[in-house]
């Protein structure tokens, strides 16, 4: 289940950090005006003009798949047999009257007092921040490593170098990337950066479950312009995808 938060300007899709899900969490933001011609929202009050709801993301993606050559798509919050997101798709037809497909996706509304549980996850204090190589390349490398070992060692430094490694009794494999570049720090982000004083050549390493990393890569339908990877040694990797319409953050916990 994922949480959808609607506000006047933005849509948020969130997967919250639950141990049962393996501790992976996700946060994505979409600017409403980039997607919709018309957008109306009426929250519970003027002060809290927002809606929080929970839905099965696979339902949403399946419903929207049927709409790929649609003339128009309308998304509404409706009250059917239960609260639903109704997606009404107008498809071209052989006659003058359009074909209409509607999908009612059951949702659960989240009451006002639980809203605080869904705040943007705080950016961890990280040791290294680096741009990721093209995600397709990373995926190809990991798909092969996965057959050998389930623990991925990711190490990087502030000199644009990154290594993806696995280590077993029989084999050690390492893939090196260089000249990746490190994102410049803007006001506000530098306070999370702990590695100011360290040698830019020294590598910070973190171990993660290779399958969790793969899941993130498999889900990439948006091809991001840039992907930033922040490494918090022994705690997590924090990946930020930058795209003109969408921003997506992904948190993968470390294996100690």
């Amino acid at each position: 289940m994922c949480t959808l938060r609607l506000t006047k300007e933005k849509l948020f899709f969130m997967l919250t950090d639950k141990v049962a899900n393996g501790g992976v969490s996700m946060w994505s933001e979409l600017l409403q005006e980039n997607f919709f011609d018309e957008f109306q929202i009426e929250g519970i009050s003027l002060e809290y003009n927002e809606i929080y709801l929970e839905l099965a993301p696979e339902n949403l993606s399946r419903a929207l798949k049927t709409a790929h050559n649609a003339k128009s798509v309308k998304i509404k919050l409706t009250k059917k047999h239960c609260p639903c997101i109704t997606i009404a798709v107008e498809l071209p037809s052989l006659s003058s009257i359009s074909r209409v497909v509607t999908h009612d996706i059951p949702v659960e509304l989240i009451s006002r007092r639980l809203w605080n549980d869904f705040r943007e996850p705080s950016v961890p204090d990280f040791d290294v921040s680096i741009y990721l190589p093209p995600l397709k390349t990373v995926k190809n490398v990991l798909d092969r490593m996965r057959n050998l070992c389930h623990v991925l060692v990711l190490e990087a430094n502030m000199n644009g170098e990154m290594n993806l490694k696995i280590d077993t009794d029989l084999v050690s494999v390492s893939t090196h990337f260089r000249d990746l570049g490190n994102p410049p720090f803007r006001e506000g982000t530098s306070r999370h950066f702990q590695g100011q004083d360290q040698d830019p050549e020294s590598l910070t390493e973190v171990k993660v479950d290779i399958r969790k990393f793969q899941q993130f890569l498999a889900g990439q339908q948006v091809n991001p312009d840039k992907a930033i990877c922040n490494i918090a040694s022994k705690r997590m990797i924090h990946i930020i995808l930058l795209h003109e319409d969408v921003s997506l953050q992904y948190f993968i916990p470390a294996i100690l």
């Binding site: 099965a56 419903a63 006659s95 074909r99 209409v100 009612d104 059951p106």
Partner: peptide
């Protein structure tokens, strides 16, 4: 459980 299932409906005009 209808509160978990997505319900899909499609409407076609007779002249199709």
């Amino acid at each position: 459980d209808i509160t978990k299932l997505m319900v899909t409906e499609m409407s076609l005009a007779a002249d199709e």
